[in-house]
Design a protein around this nucleic acid. Structure first.
Lengths: 223, 223, 223, 223
DNA sequence: TATGAATGAGAGTTCATTCAT
DNA sequence: TATGAATGAACTCTCATTCAT
């Protein structure tokens, strides 16, 4: 890219424009796919529908994405990034302690779920059990998230001078927390529409998590 | 029926045999579908494959089941029944207290997951986001389960003379518990193969749950 | 049949009963098929539906009828008989003259169409273009009818001392009359529901026919 | 379109060529379907056969036509247009009088039937009683035709200063005429092969019609 | 880059007919 | 006679992917 710029200033600007356009196209297609997958379902959305919705030809979709699976995988990556940012930012703001933990939970329900319901649908519903490749990717994504949570837990532990009871404890907690996030979101976003009470629900869920975490510390000194 | 029996013993027995054979065929097809769905995935398993695996013709599959969706729905119902039995039996054995809760959790991980990994795959993976009809069925199934858990929680509350903090608390706890069951099973059954340590993992998960529940009682007097 | 009777009087009576039952079954199945074909259409009605509607097993339907096509062919034959009776009886009652012709036409619209709308549906709609065998049968049926009409026309001619203009005339008239019967019935029975005005409509159609017939006599001396 | 032409002559021409090719494919498929439906029957002709006969893939047939029913419906529309043109042109050539009527009849038998026997087969045989949707379409088509005939009749009436006897008369005549066309064509095209004498047959049929029409005028002074 | 017509394998489903009981 | 479970070929339709232009 920089090489091209050096050669020719004029070409560079048009190249830049093209680059911008390309990026824009890419995002447009991805957004159309996200919406369709979330509302119609992965299998019910055809590549033609995605092309139509993004106002490009079918061929263009294949120019930007290897295949249909690639589309949802990119979506998952984007979504994983967004989720980890949301949680990480909230956690770090309050330091590595139980308060940070709480805030991360609140952020999940009150920010992430509310602002990106489609992304939730992709990761919690549309990418489940579709193909080995997707399952692999989903696994990797969840492992990153549980890894984050686990690291956070460890940090809190060190700060508070406590340890976990068993060798699996930290990981199991992390996995459990993700499970709570997932199912509570699924229940109240997709099945009931309790968007209005999501704050209340989130608080309860987070309290539950805090209690659960404390219970697996060797020394149960609550927050 | 009794009339028929009186008239002709032999006819009755042949009718009975047919009935048995029919039941047997039904179960054979269902078992074949369960295995295929769990190993190959719902969409990848064709009706022909299911017919082949159950050693009947395609037409016979349609004789016993309305369509492909009906197959997985029957599977879900069966599985829902098995799950609720497992949890309910364990809970009732120890009375409506936290110990009953623990035992139900242990039963899930140590009995249900271990004995019916295919059923877990159906309910936690293969039936997710497949069609509106299936989603409806899945919702109903989960609602029954969370309803059970909720009732159990309420019973424990009354026994211990405590109440829950908020109006959603009981439901959110129930949903969270199901979320933990689901994700922990998914993680350690489908993604890692930690069958050997499932007991240890289950103990941690249940401890987490117990802590979480206690934390949502108005009076946090732990077990 | 008589042979059986001679052998054993008692067996004969039971044989007779069986004969009656058989005839009854046959008619029951035929009636069920007629109704289903007329309301649901030939292809949409399955042998199972027919069996259900006649309260016998599928096997029994095949015992009485060679196959599905045989069912509709029997229906066509029955219907052909009924139609020819209706027309023939009306014609003969008034002698071989134009009045007889008129009455036959009235009988078609006011008796046949009104009393056997299902039979009309079979012969004018459900048996059209289904298979070579059925087409052959339909052709034979129509030929009998046009033959009847032709004979009637010839008789009238002789009575009135007139002849037809061309060599085809008599046949073309007969075919035309059948065409009018068919399409007028189709239009006002299946497409519009003008059952209430069928008498009026029939009168017009018959007047049209009379005029047409007269116009093909060499000497146009009207009735 | 003009904008595109100005920019690039070549692009325009290639776009035009594509347009032409598309139209050509469409017509090729339609023609193949017409032939197959007419010779083999609608139900006996599979989409694969149609695709093979038009030398395209099955997918292409579905690209140009919504489904199998759509194919025959397009065929019916085309055919309806052709029929009405034939009749209308002949009628108008001779003015709104009985001569025009005669000529329209001759045109049906001598032009339409002779030149488009497949189209006759579609409309008079293959589209009968196939499905509710098709029946609806057939009804609409026939209603247009009878409507045309009725209008013609009314015009002739006004020109000759006569009226019809009853309120239904005009419509019944129109329907009867269509019935004669239909059945005479069916009889001598599909059942007998009397193509050679079609002129003679047509003359008789038309004479019959003329006589019938006259007979429903209030004052029967006509040719 | 960009198009969109073309492919064709593969899916789910139906149903006339048979035959062991 | 009577049953109705069993067969399996045949059908319509979908859609991810490719490629000539």
């Amino acid at each position: 890219m920089p090489a091209k710029n050096l050669k020719n200033e004029k070409l560079s600007s048009s190249a830049l424009r093209r680059q911008r356009e390309r990026e824009h196209r890419y995002q447009t297609i991805l957004a159309a796919a996200e919406k369709l997958f979330a509302t119609e379902g992965y299998h019910k959305s055809s590549m033609e529908q995605i092309a139509d919705a993004s106002e490009v030809s079918v061929g263009m979709v294949y120019f930007y994405f290897k295949n249909k699976e690639d589309l949802i995988i990119q979506l998952m990556d984007e979504m994983g990034y967004a989720l980890r940012s949301t949680l990480g930012t909230a956690f770090k703001k309050y330091g590595a302690n139980m308060e940070g933990f709480k805030q991360a939970g609140y952020a999940f329900f009150e920010d992430f779920c509310v602002n990106y319901p489609e992304k939730c649908a992709i990761i919690f519903r549309e990418s489940v059990g579709k193909s080995p490749g997707m399952e692999q990717h989903r696994k990797a994504l969840f492992e990153k998230c549980t890894g984050d949570v686990r690291k956070a837990l460890t940090a809190v532990c060190e700060n508070q001078g406590v340890t976990f009871k068993g060798k699996y404890s930290a990981e199991v907690i992390a996995v459990s927390i993700m499970g709570i996030y997932e199912r509570v979101a699924y229940q109240y976003l997709f099945w009931q529409d309790a968007s209005h009470d999501i704050k209340l629900i989130g608080r309860d869920a987070v309290d539950f998590i805090i209690g659960g975490v404390n219970n697996l510390f060797n020394d149960s000194s609550c927050t």
